[in-house]
Design a protein around this nucleic acid. Structure first.
Lengths: 126, 126
DNA sequence: TTGTTAATGCAGTAAAGTTGCTTTAATAAA
DNA sequence: TTTATTAAAGCAACTTTACTGCATTAACAA
């Protein structure tokens, strides 16, 4: 396994994700970050974090990916993220909800990941 | 409500979706359709079908939308599609699974839609 | 048969993300 | 502390998916 180096950019992105109350898109990260980082760098970084199991993402209905730190309970069953996400149609933010869904075993299927998304209007935007 | 007219292109897309065993992307529809239809037309058509509740879609992890006909059991609880989908990492196909997930009521959230996606390797590709 | 307007086609555009390649800098080794 | 290695960053060009505006065509109701 290749080592992940402690760079200014990576630390900045990680602390952004830590402080965030919602799952951030690459775009949101680029807007909110206080150090100068290239777009490609952010994408590659997130890719590494996901591969390392530090971060997971959900793709919203518009096809945009939103990234969030993996919490302790986040991937209980191996690397599966069986918790619910919510996408607000008004503010376009996506958040992880502390709600786990039970999924029956899918005979003959090999399941690696899960992305459970609910869509509507969040409490703030109602 | 505006009327949906019975055009050659729309009938062709609908019968493609009917015959399909997987949820089709706009691209797959364009490749498989036997009449000459413009890309934009397909997108607008699908948009209409979704608005009319005839069709639903799931966005895969890569951000691409896959469309499937709504079956009778598809939207029992109003317009929610609380069944599971499966995206195969090998053949990149997405299918509707006859598995419904129970979602607890989300206090203070207004839920309009759901997209439940599992990702891995399908029986055919194993 | 005709008028209305839903649906189509075309061209151009936009957003999200990726690729190839070079350069920089974090870290291990000397 | 210096040097070597290579992970990470930066830049520019590109791909894919999808959308927009506008002109044209063709369902279908009257």
């Amino acid at each position: 396994m290749t080592v992940i180096r402690k760079t200014q950019a990576q630390e900045a992105v990680l602390s952004l994700l830590e402080a965030a109350s919602t799952a951030l898109s690459a775009d949101e990260i680029l807007q909110q970050i206080d150090v100068s980082v290239n777009k490609t760098t952010v994408y590659r970084m997130l890719e590494r974090f996901v591969a390392a199991g530090k971060v997971h993402f959900v793709t919203d209905t518009d096809g945009k990916a939103h990234y969030a730190l993996c919490s302790s309970g986040c991937k209980q069953n191996h690397t599966l993220h069986n918790h619910l996400h919510f996408q607000c149609k008004v503010c376009n933010q996506v958040e992880c909800l502390p709600v786990k869904l039970e999924v029956p075993v899918l005979e003959n299927y090999e399941v690696h990941e899960m992305q459970f998304l609910t869509v509507g209007v969040c409490p703030k935007c109602k």
